[in-house]
Design a protein around this nucleic acid. Structure first.
Lengths: 200, 200
DNA sequence: TACCAGTCTGGCACTGTGTGACAGATTTGG
DNA sequence: CCAAATCTGTCACACAGTGCCAGACTGGTA
């Protein structure tokens, strides 16, 4: 039985969420202030007032503090894609799903630019981000297979995977151009431009 | 003056090349035998008979022992692309250049499968490989810009970058399918299939 | 209230990668 | 043979990440 009133989850869960949130905000502040590589896990832990060991219990790696949301974003993207009409061609559905994800991000344009710039500046962050995005493809493949038509051949997965990977490559190219421009160009336009170039 | 007869480069350079080659072959043997992560730099150094510190002087990171060729491969790819007729459409030129690179690889199909499988199995190797391939795009962009037509607008780089990234994404998808099939399917066919799916 | 079981925490030790500094050996060019 | 440049091994160090353990805390029960 639950004796506490109006508590959706136990105290444990709530404190855990709170600590998690504090870690992210504190760490992000330090990262943006001194750079990702230059900030050590020990500094972050000291700043918050917990031990280094506990910090590693909340986030398995330094990169996860920054990219922790990426797994959820993948799920959101999958949901958005599956919400598109079944008959819609893959590229249009992917475009719409990516736009939905982009619009749902809670960052202000300035913060988003700072974070994205940091992501581009640190090799290890870029690498981990790509790793997470590879997992995005895995999530998207089933839906794309469906959209490509129900040919039973075993290579439909290859086709779907290539399509998803190209869409994310275009997203990356667009984001890259956006960052280079200092956030001045329109991201949506850049993405369409990238797709148009790729499709010839 | 060079007192030694028939030596294209000094003794230093030759021994350096020899040691480098021995490191690669010894390390690859250990990697394929016990796995990449399970093999430590100390083990490799001991096996060869040099100090750990010297090993790090030859290869700045463990991943570089495996992916050292990747930089040269990028150059080879650029050369192959630039050797294609100027009027040829980007996708066809890229396809031909990638095939030329693939054909020039010195590995037997069995070795190539083993190495590629290892590359897919280790997250840190995958990440570094992707990083190197990102540099490939930088090398290819100028030529693709030329092929896309000399529109002076500043966004031609975005288009070229997207194209290169999609081509490499298709290569990745094809390689992935090839590895999953245990090397049975035809890589060239898989690549074409991936491109066809992406271009709709 | 008291108690027990599950969980969280900090502290310690340890592995492995990667880097800087230094002294001694080796090569290079004259 | 000499002097400058380069390579080598050794030691020390920073940092990420992990296993282990004892103590503290929480949640539910009697």
């Amino acid at each position: 039985m639950d004796h506490r009133a109006g508590n959706p989850a136990g105290l444990r869960e709530r404190t855990r969420r709170a600590v998690q949130a504090e870690i992210v905000s504190t760490a992000m502040r330090l990262f943006l202030e001194h750079g990702f590589e230059a900030t050590t896990m020990e500094q972050i832990a000291n700043e918050i007032g917990i031990s280094r060991r506990s910090l590693f219990r909340y986030f398995g790696s330094k990169e996860d503090i920054v990219l922790g949301d990426h797994a959820e974003h993948g799920e959101a993207l999958r949901t958005a894609l599956e919400a598109r009409p079944p008959g819609e061609p893959p590229w249009e559905a992917l475009r719409a799903a990516l736009k939905a994800l982009y619009d749902s991000l809670p960052y202000s344009p300035e913060d988003f630019l700072k974070i994205t710039s940091m992501l581009h500046a640190s090799p290890s962050l870029r690498a981990h981000q790509w790793e997470k995005r590879q997992q995005w493809t895995d999530l998207l493949v089933p839906d794309i297979v469906r959209r490509l038509g129900a040919t039973r051949d075993p290579m439909s997965e290859l086709r779907a995977r290539a399509l998803a990977a190209c869409a994310l490559a275009c997203l990356e190219a667009a984001t890259d151009a956006w960052v280079r421009s200092g956030g001045t160009i329109d991201m949506e336009w850049a993405f369409d431009e990238a797709v148009a170039a790729a499709r010839g």
